[in-house]
């Protein structure tokens, strides 16, 4: 069964067609990378999927349900989680509160669940979520105090803490050190059994290492799709992208 399916998805900004007629099908459990030159429309594509932007035309199905009309927060609740290309955390809040925001949402049912919490249990969960990305010790620091690479990891932790079914990550390794990248790759492999991952990535070793299938986007349209080996061998892709 496909987890995510788009039909003839298009997004136009004035005269610019940033996404053109994209049919994308993503089976559950896959790690899919989307690659393409700068300005190819990758971020626009995932923004439309996550609901940050409205498509000009086309439909989006999530678990065979048409979600085209859902707003971004409804999609996040449905299980589509987006982590930002430009780090977007809550800089003035502690790492604890950053993660608590992601974790508490599922508990906020009924009036009592909205107004009361068990601080100790919450803290334990926050600690575990931070530990997944190696930030457990930073729990009481504000996000702004973290070095850039750690803020990226906090961003990823926020996404994971929402227990997504589909995790869309927009250039997650940008600005990370090699050691952090290696750790990140382990993390993604570790969650891949439960979560479907849609990854926009410029770092080719990371793509080749993680992705089961790759979709190549150029000028808003899908140019090719296949396994890493197929993509590497594809002449059109080489011309358009890898060759340059």
């Amino acid at each position: 069964m496909s987890l995510l399916r788009t039909e003839a998805l298009s997004k136009r900004f004035g005269g610019l067609e940033a996404v053109r007629n994209v049919d994308l099908e993503l089976p559950a459990g896959e790690i899919r990378a989307v690659i393409g030159p700068n300005g190819a429309g990758k971020t626009t594509l995932v923004s439309v999927i996550s609901g940050r932007l409205e498509p000009t035309a086309g439909r989006i199905f999530f678990k065979d349900r048409d979600i085209t009309g859902l707003s971004a927060w409804q999609r996040a609740r449905a299980g589509i989680v987006y982590t930002f290309q430009i780090t977007s955390v809550f800089p003035k809040l502690s790492c604890h509160d950053n993660l608590a925001l992601a974790i508490q949402r599922r508990r906020m049912t009924g009036l009592a669940g909205r107004l009361r919490e068990d601080p100790a249990a919450l803290r334990a969960e926050v600690e575990a979520a931070l530990a997944r990305v190696g930030l457990a010790e930073d729990i009481d620091r504000t996000a702004a105090e973290l070095p850039y690479g750690h803020q990226r990891l906090l961003e990823v932790a926020l996404g994971l803490a929402l227990s997504p079914e589909l995790l869309i990550m927009d250039e997650p390794t940008q600005g990370l050190s090699n050691a952090e990248i290696a750790r990140f790759c382990d993390l993604v492999r570790g969650i891949a059994s439960e979560v479907t991952v849609l990854l926009i990535e410029h770092n080719m070793p990371v793509v080749m290492d993680l992705a089961e299938r790759i979709t190549v986007v150029e000028r808003g349209a899908v140019l090719a799709e296949g396994t890493p080996a197929e993509i590497r061998a594809d002449a059109a892709v080489q011309r358009a992208y890898l060759g340059t």
Binding site: W73, L93, R114
Partner: peptide, 25 residues
């Protein structure tokens, strides 16, 4: 200091992020 209060503060600090965490801001 309730979960709701935390969301209100989150809206103040970064509304877009709060929305993407699944909250109807």
């Amino acid at each position: 200091h309730s979960p709701v209060g935390r969301v209100l503060v989150a809206v103040r600090e970064n509304e877009q992020r709060t929305r993407m965490l699944g909250y109807n801001t």
